[in-house]
Nucleic acid binder design. Structure first.
Length: 562
RNA sequence: GUCCCCGUAGCUCAGUGGAUAGAGCAACCGCCUCCUAAGCGGUAGGUCGCAGGUUCAACUCCCGCCGGGGACACCA
């Protein structure tokens, strides 16, 4: 790996570690602290610019074990670090922070790195070789995708992209609950609607049922004259196909794509349930009681044991879920990520216990994300949603109102474990209130500058880039932000929190706008073209690459013009 | 009753144990004879729900309260 592929902060971090070990060898620090020295020294970017480009609190951490004053420890490290070429100065501040200021030219080399790596700047290898099954949405094929599904459609897709960028081998999977009572109710509801009869008790209401029924009959009028039970079965199966096709179409328009559409039926027909049962029995956590077959999930912290097979011989949904998990692991996935709605939070304990019953590590092999509710505001008040009354907002309706970019971006920029309120009126506005425009505008603005640079025949490209030109504080700030990107992406992947990428982009856009107001990129009037113009244009190009890469991770477009 | 999530500026919310807790909006004051003003600068706004504990260091971790939301089936 060439040095340009290791970030400057990683190099500094490694230098600090070397400096500590050297100090121990030289007897400046006691030998006993060797085991206290972390594998990688964490650096942070100080909020306050007076505190340098990077800061480390390592001296504070090592002070106690080495029996020294933290400022003395810092002072020993300071002299060992000062000789490193990339570092221009090291200050000791406060109780013993090491504040490191980088040599500006070496920091500016980042522009070359970004413009060389292009799309892959921000990719990492933290999850290399890890096979991840990412399951999200998994709606019943009995109705349109609603607001809750939409949150997952955006966040799940972004998480998939982020995990891939971190090197993981990701398969996105949609589990189709196409088996059981709900499907029968769906079929019966369609049939009733077609015949003009009242929808059955607990059946599916809503205009969409009559719409589907009508188009099924229009496709094949003979449906109406079929004998029972064939007719209701046909309504169920054709309705299923219609609805699933509709969900696929809507998700496709939304930019969310799945690698696997996994049918619950296939789980049963393919024998996965039997395989799972055998495996669980072998692990010794299955027992019979009161005529039912149970899984002793309480062995692993669940609050009660769960039924696999009911007394009447039917399999429970829990049995399907369990078999599905074991099936995923059987397909070679190391980590199974589930993205579930808040109403499923009771599942977390049992899913983890299930994994443990199957002999897996519930802390590693399975990861459950619980998404909180999305409320929607329009015209200054909350839109009351009720499935029964048919006032649901679908993914498609939301996209019609605000567009794919605004919908995706807004849904992604909040952590999923907090309830969010989505204000339709704000999303229609092209102002700072709507952060997606703030970020996209930065991209469009830079694209405009670069177009002008080309027209003015300013030499761009790396052969015209001189890092020593970039000495302005704003340039330094911008370079610092650009350097953060790979860490942000890796952290977002590790924590399964794609919203961190969105927040970072807002920060980066802000830093760029400030740079833009203070640092003129293109020559003014008759000013001759200089190396500074070329170097700044390259800095702009690098910034745009990073914004583009970030927006790509969110599935949001990066417009050239606005 | 048990479990999960939340409580940070007037509002909507960020904040992986670090220094003076941040952003956008709303309020007020400024900045376009020249690169996109969908932008930038400034002022004002805080007992980080309350009380303990751990730590050199707590909005962050632990314990207990208070307040808000949600979940608890041989339902799907």
């Amino acid at each position: 790996m060439s040095s340009s592929e290791i970030s400057l902060s990683e190099q500094i971090s490694a230098h600090i570690r070397t400096a500590i070990l050297a100090a121990i060898d030289a007897g400046q620090l006691p030998k006993e602290i060797s085991k206290e020295v972390p594998e990688s020294i964490s650096l942070e970017r100080p909020k306050n610019r007076d505190h340098g480009d990077y800061a480390s609190s390592i001296a504070l951490q090592l002070a106690k074990p080495s029996g020294k004053n933290p400022r003395d420890v810092a002072s020993i490290l300071q002299s060992n670090l000062a000789v490193i070429p990339e570092i221009s100065k090291v200050d000791i501040a406060g109780p013993g922070f090491l504040n490191i200021t980088l040599n500006r030219a070496s920091q500016a080399e980042l522009v070359s790195t970004i413009l060389t790596l292009k799309k892959s700047y921000g990719h990492s290898t933290g999850l290399k070789g890890v096979r991840i099954n990412l399951e999200f949405i998994s709606a019943n094929p009995t109705g349109p995708l609603h607001l809750g599904h939409t949150r997952w459609a955006a966040v799940g897709d972004a998480l998939g992209r982020v995990l891939s960028a971190a090197g993981a081998d990701v398969v996105r999977e949609f589990y189709i609950n196409d088996r059981g009572n709900q499907m029968d109710l769906f079929g019966a509801s369609l049939e009733a609607a077609a015949l003009g009869k009242p929808i059955p008790e607990d059946g599916y209401q809503g205009q969409y049922i009559s719409d589907i029924a009508a188009s099924l009959v229009a496709q094949d009028p003979q449906l109406m004259s079929m004998p029972e039970p064939q007719r209701v079965n046909e309504f169920r199966e054709r309705g299923y196909a219609w609805q699933l096709g509709d969900q696929k179409r809507v998700l496709d328009n939304f930019g969310t794509h799945f690698d696997v559409w996994f049918s619950e039926r296939s789980l049963h027909e393919g024998g996965s349930v039997d395989v799972a049962m055998v495996k669980l029995r072998k692990q010794g956590h299955v027992f019979e009681e009161e005529g039912a077959t149970w899984l002793r999930t309480t062995d692993f912290g669940d609050d009660k044991d769960r039924v696999l097979t009911k007394a009447n011989g039917d399999l429970t949904y829990f049995a399907s879920d369990t078999a599905y998990y074991i099936n995923k692991r059987g397909r070679g996935f190391d980590i199974c990520i589930y993205m579930l709605g808040a109403d499923h939070h009771g599942y977390v304990g049992r899913l983890k216990a299930t994994a443990a019953c199957a002999g897996d590590d519930p802390e590693y092999n399975i990861h459950v994300l619980i998404g909180q509710l999305v409320k929607i505001m329009e015209g200054g008040e909350e839109v009351k949603l009720s499935k029964r009354a048919g006032t649901i907002i679908t993914l498609e309706e939301l996209v019609e109102k605000v567009g794919v970019d605004a919908a995706r971006y807004t849904l992604i920029r909040y952590p999923v474990d907090t309830p969010m309120i989505l204000d339709v009126d704000v999303l229609k506005r092209n102002t700072n209130e709507n952060p997606v425009y703030y970020v996209q505008y930065a991209h469009a603005r830079i694209a405009g500058v670069l177009r002008n640079a080309q027209e003015l025949k300013i030499p761009v490209g790396l052969e015209n880039f001189d890092p020593s030109q970039l000495t302005h504080d704003r340039e330094n700030e911008l370079l610092g932000s650009l350097a953060e990107f790979p860490k942000i992406v890796a952290g977002a992947a590790e924590m399964r929190e794609p919203h961190r990428v969105a927040r970072y982009l807002e920060e980066l856009a802000g830093v760029y706008h400030r740079f833009y107001s203070d640092c003129r990129v293109l020559p003014l009037g008759d000013e001759p073209i200089s190396a500074l113009h070329s170097s700044r244009a390259n800095l702009c190009a690098a910034t745009n690459q990073v914004i583009k890469n970030g927006l790509d991770l969110l599935g949001v477009s990066a417009p050239e013009k606005m």
